[in-house]
Design a protein around this nucleic acid. Structure first.
Lengths: 338, 338
DNA sequence: AGCGCGATGGTAACCGGTGTCAATCCTGCC
DNA sequence: GGCAGGATTGACACCGGTTACCATCGCGCT
């Protein structure tokens, strides 16, 4: 408050004012046990008075590790990315960690180089990988090679528990389809996601599992593939609804495509859910804001992200963190009994 | 590749192998002009061979500034937040800057303390503030006090150009409403946003401007207030459509409420846009994925965020960056002539 | 009284860069 | 050939922390 010439107070200032050495101040900051109580109090008083906060860059340099965790993603689902960011933040709030984000372009040929530069340049403590990029094994290997710890989030277990937090999309979809069966539906269409997405493959398997368990035969006439977009959902819907006999229910591998199916149904005069039941996946904002609100499957994203972040930053608690999560079926109004 | 015992190569390793001093290597890294070409080449060769990348923490310490820019927000619109993140990233890609995000809770009483702790602890180079929290002057003052440069994004100019990148919501709404007038609508309803949001106030003003210019009298029977949610849009829609005479068009202050109005209209048997034209604001994912696709107003978010980031990190280019942006009217299918 | 020992706290080096300033090397020019 | 002066380069301190290791202190003990 006196001659503090612009600059923030440093550990030296604290030491001088408290009449102790830097080292002692450092001990106070790091809560070292071998410290006389009165010394500690004296130092703490000075710290409070000066409003001293240790310089993170200096700390990082001396400790040879920093306190930044990265989030690398190419996920088009804004809702999900933000959910992850909030989940991570809830884990690192009240710690000295901070979250650095890095959207990348999956299709870019130099995606890997881009990530490499990023990791080398920033020397992050660790990174989280979101799908679909988290399915890229080369990326995980790159982290390994660069000595950056990582945790992947995904729709299926792709790595050991230490490096993975996974939902079980296959099971979740099977449950959703079984739910349709439970509502009396026997002719259930399916809109698959694009190739190359692990989630798409898993959801496909879940659909097949459910039909098999219900002893319903697969019929390729009521199966179509989309690419997770609204438009592809429309196209898929048109194909499926042209089949004869028509499906009485359709499971779409994500909400956007489900919205597209809904649109296709409506444009040929069918009403939902009276004439057609629809289930989506992801519980994005769209799901709740179309009419009728979409029944869908939801990853517990925040919880997953939080668990992932804890795995990254706190080895002690890491083993208590679950690596597998169950998705919930969110029942809204797009499903009716057959 | 030989005895590199785990650790990454440092400037000392490079200096030793190149047979020059640290300082010279430093000069090469920083592209200092006063350097003999042959020396530079020699050093660059060693750098390439070793795969040397300067340690950002050490740099930050020595330079007394770091290369982290923060994004502080409490914005519920995921689409927008992600757009901003991408905009910022496009500005800092190929620089050594990184983006640190910090979602906060607007309603929390210790929001300011939370931000203060964050800023003091991380010693960021600068921060960007997103609405609605960017409207909080105390926050801007806090940044000032802590010596953190900041740039605010918002729907109206709240600060000098150096610290502000603004759209002009008032003008944008006026244009949108004028567009409805141009389509022959004379009875145009309005759904306002919640109090306390500057954007809501501006959009309200824009509506009034447009009516005044068109010499249409305000009628509180076809004005309602919502809180930017889908549900509040339904309620507002019900109120407005119960008025007599009914409005032939409705402007809603955001897309979610517009979707709500659409739903309200449909549930009383009106079809859109035949019986009712609707315009929203924000161009969120919902706008494109409901039926009919919503005509709406869009902030050029990425461009704004990019300009804001450049203002933050590059004083030289900062003055070339615009501080004001015009929003675009995105014409889809929810508007028809009266 | 002298001694050993655990509890505290200090000193100096170091983490990996950058700034300052002086030393050295050229070069042209008288 | 000698010298001024700009172009290069290096030595060294320093940024603000931490660690390794040493010094001191107070105490109980013989």
């Amino acid at each position: 408050m006196s001659k503090a010439k612009e600059g923030k107070p440093t550990i030296n200032d604290v030491a001088r004012l408290a009449g102790v050495s830097k080292k002692t101040v450092s001990r106070v900051i790091n809560r070292s046990a071998l410290l006389n109580a009165s010394t500690r109090e004296k130092v703490e008083a000075v710290i409070a008075e000066l409003g001293y906060v240790p310089n993170p860059q200096a700390r990082a340099l001396a400790l040879r590790r920093n306190f930044l965790i990265g989030l690398i993603h190419d996920n088009p689902n804004a809702q999900m990315v933000l959910g992850v960011q909030e989940g991570i933040l809830s884990a690192i709030r009240d710690t000295e960690f901070a979250l650095v984000v890095r959207p990348v372009n999956r299709r870019s040929p130099d995606m890997l180089d881009d990530v490499r530069t990023f990791l080398e340049q920033q020397r992050l403590f660790g990174v989280m990988l979101l799908p679909p990029i988290s399915e890229n094994d080369a990326l995980a290997q790159l982290c390994e090679e660069l000595g950056v710890t990582y945790v992947r989030m995904g729709s299926v277990r792709l790595d050991d528990d230490e490096h993975m937090v996974a939902s079980n999309d296959r099971e979740a979809v099977a449950k959703a389809v079984a739910y349709l069966v439970g509502q009396g539906h026997q002719r259930i269409g399916f809109v698959a996601g694009p190739e190359g997405f692990r989630s798409a493959a898993e959801r496909d398997l879940g659909y097949r599992d459910a039909l098999e368990r219900a002893r319903i035969r697969l019929d390729s006439a009521i199966m179509a593939q989309g690419n997770y977009t609204f438009e592809s959902g429309i196209a898929a819907g048109e194909k499926l609804l042209a089949a004869s006999p028509r499906p009485s229910a359709i499971f779409a591998s994500n909400d956007e495509m489900a919205a597209g199916v809904l649109h296709a149904a409506r444009s040929i005069g069918m009403s939902v859910p009276e004439d057609l039941s629809i289930i989506g996946f992801d519980d994005t904002a769209i799901a709740a804001h179309i009419w009728p609100p979409l029944t869908t499957v939801r990853w517990p994203i925040q919880a997953m992200a939080k668990a992932a972040a804890i795995k990254l930053i706190d080895p002690a608690e890491a083993r208590d963190q679950p690596s597998h999560f169950l998705s919930d079926l969110i029942e809204r109004a797009s499903v009716a009994p057959a």
